[in-house]
Each structure stands twice: as C-alpha cells, then as structure tokens.
Amino acid sequence: MWKQMMPGLRMTLLLTVLTGLIYPGVVTAICQMVFPSQANGSLVYRGGKVAGSSLIGQSFTRPEYFRPRPSAAGSDGYDASASGGSNLGPTSQKLIDRVKASAEKARVEEKITADLPADMLTASASGLDPHVSPASAQLQAPRVAVARGASTAAILSLVEQFTEGRDLGFLGEPRVNVLMLNLELDRKFPLTK
C-alpha cells in the first residue's frame, strides 16, 4: 500500500517545484525583461503618477468626460480589486429597473430620444470593461463638446481617431477605449478654469 502511495507524494512535490515555482518563475523573468510594460499592467501615467491602466476601465461622472458602461465591480463600480458582473438574469426586476433608470438619465444628459445602444446601459462581465461601442461614444460627443467649449465635429473626429476596428479584421467588435480618449481630451481640449 505505502509503496503504491509513495510515488504519489513524490510526484506531487516534484510537480509543485516544476510547475508551481520554476515555470511561473521563468515566465515572470522573461516577461519582465521582454514585455515590462504589459507584464506590469499596461499602466498609464499623468504628471509622473499612475492614472490607471489602458486595459482597465475607470469611472467618469463629470460632463466633460466620456462615460464608461455601468459597472458591478465593487460597491460603487470600477473597483479593480473586485471584478465581477451583476449576474442579474433576463427576468430580473432589478435589472429592468436599473436599465430604465440609466436610460432615462442618459436621455436627459445627452438630449436624445432615440433608442440607446445596449452596451451603454448594461453592466459588463468584468465590471472593468475599458471600452464602449463607437455608437455609445458618438452620442456623448455633443455633451462633451459643450462642457469643453469645443465643436462637436472636433470631438467626433477624436472619437473616430480612438475607434479600434476588429482584430485581424474579423475578431471581436469595434470599440473605443474611454480612459485613453479622455486623457487625449484633457491634452487637446483642456478645461479653462
């Protein structure tokens, strides 16, 4: 019995060292040398301080910024140490109420009456979605333009510039990175206060 069991113990120890310490150690060493920016979270800096990550969404509430999608991460959204979705199902009263409230708010703020893009009113899976759809960004452009004293056309052309197409032409969906767009807004159309 014991003779049968022994290789089990030894193999567990061996694999722990090989695949649990050596393998991740080697990967860490190579990645830190070859892809230091990506390996450390694709962080973006402003004024020498970390302003976020180009891959991670953050919350924007002021009128001069483009807004991200609703987020269920953490207690008030975009908590990058507590990812997650709402997990509300299609027949959930809570979901319908939440979407209705966001839709009404968006219609007032963006001054539109038309149907709204789905991504703008729904919470993402990670709660950290850095993107909105191009349609969601475009309909926010007039508000941002007013808040910044810029022309809508100028803001729309910036949205156009920050619209990423599908990967390799067919994978995924076109999208706009909200943080990167807002950083560029601050650079190009700074608020004069």
Partner: peptide, 9 residues
Amino acid sequence: NMEGKEVRF
C-alpha cells in the same frame, strides 16, 4: 443582450 458581456468581444 450585452448585460454581463464585454464590448471588445
């Protein structure tokens, strides 16, 4: 149905 889905996907 975009609830619980990411824009990039």
